[in-house]
Write a protein that binds this DNA or RNA. Structure first.
Lengths: 235, 235
DNA sequence: ATTTCATAATGACATATATCAATATATTTT
DNA sequence: AAAATATATTGATATATGTCATTATGAAAT
């Protein structure tokens, strides 16, 4: 049985440099077959590293299930948590066709099944399928726009605004619910928001006292999304 | 007479999402001719806006001479100055083939001549020339890597480190000299370094007192690059 | 059940950085 | 040359945020 690579409904706005699987839609039968014969799956436990920054980019990876965090590691400083990946996100990475190195690490935050496709096969699709190339460019561009937003959030906003952005991102884009339970630690949330874990805890407490959110351990509930949006806007 | 679009030696590492002109190298004669018949040049005075964020992306633009700053504008907050563009940089922008809007503004910081190429012609090259498409992807990826570095600099480093990064960028990548005179204001430098202009002035003064740099108005001279690199590293 | 360990929470304090107001210096306009 | 305007500089002060030490809580291991 051939597993579907992606469905119409799977198209994701979320991507690590790379892309959601819309990219696979334009492949012809033969190309799809090529992916299926060469690909292999790997199971990762929560906490395990799927991609290590600096390592060779040999495969394009897409997530079958589970969730992973994308980290910009920075030797002496704290990591920057760029985004959360989940099915149907595809991981391409900016080293693609450049120096074939990884510029981020990707670490499972839940038990995660990932599917590996030889990067040369992927490259071949770009060369032989112009719609595939255009789609890839669009998805790279989408990632750019998101990075711009991240840059704006992290450099122009104060802690309240940055944490609001993180909470809204988790609620809107990742868990798709006003109420969610996360496997992210307070440190992860801090690294997403460019704060210390202590500041995350304090700011969450403030939000809680103001009735904007409710938290209990790893459970979050957004009570006043409008206020959160307002905090995000005001910075 | 047909002006050369780009020379071998012109290949730039600097790009606004888009790319240096290495991208034009793989065009065949016919394609080059197509660019030349459709393109037009515009002269901008220092301070004039070449591209306004939010406007329609109708042309790919490359700089013939002069310099321009790329700004991420953010209604209420201060602008983020992402990078400086100069010949032979090409401006494509992440709205390309997506929503055809501009996500940054580009403003001349010197008198600047820019050349406009219809974006549909550019798109056609991506569709009909797979090497062109691959080159574009590589250049988009290069931009990604630079944005990652920018993100690391702005979010993980303190003022000293951020300003050191800005000074090294201007010296190494833009003016290509330890001594340079810039048309950037202190506010521009502040927007590049995510600081206030007052903090820029104070930090420059400190650097000067420590004999790391010398400044006189718009003239800068880096006296101890090793120390500046060290400050950049330490954050 | 008890110990061990990781994570979370709190408080006191230090520090980086912004803000505001005032003045100085250029640069342009009249 | 004088006035007007933009930019640069400085100082005093406020504020946001990080650091460090301590305790609490919960999960995993024995």
């Amino acid at each position: 049985m051939i597993t579907k690579i992606a469905q119409e409904s799977d198209i994701s706005n979320n991507n690590y440099c790379g892309t959601g699987p819309g990219i696979f839609q334009t492949l012809d039968k033969e190309q799809v077959q090529l992916v299926h014969t060469s690909r292999f799956e790997v199971d990762f436990k929560a906490g395990e590293t799927i991609i290590k920054q600096g390592s060779a980019l040999t495969h394009v990876i897409y997530l079958v299930n589970g969730k992973a965090k994308v980290l910009l590691e920075d030797s002496s400083n704290q990591d920057i948590l760029l985004q959360i990946l989940q099915q149907p996100d595809v991981i391409i990475g900016p080293g693609f066709n450049k120096d074939f190195r990884h510029y981020c690490s990707v670490v499972a935050i839940e038990d995660t099944k990932a599917c590996f496709v030889d990067v040369n096969i992927f490259k071949n699709f770009v060369e032989t399928n112009s719609q595939f190339a255009l789609d890839l460019i669009v998805l790279l561009n989408s990632g750019y726009i998101k990075l711009y937003d991240k840059l704006k959030s992290l450099t122009n906003k104060h802690m309240n605004g940055r944490l609001a952005d993180t909470l809204l991102y988790l609620s809107d884009d990742i868990y798709k619910n006003l109420e969610f339970e996360t496997t992210l630690s307070r440190l992860d949330i801090a690294n997403m928001s460019s704060m210390t874990k202590e500041s995350v805890i304090r700011t969450l407490k403030n939000f809680k006292e103001d009735g904007i959110i409710d938290t209990q351990g790893d459970s979050f509930r957004i009570l006043k999304k409008d206020v959160l949006l307002d905090i995000s806007k005001k910075g």
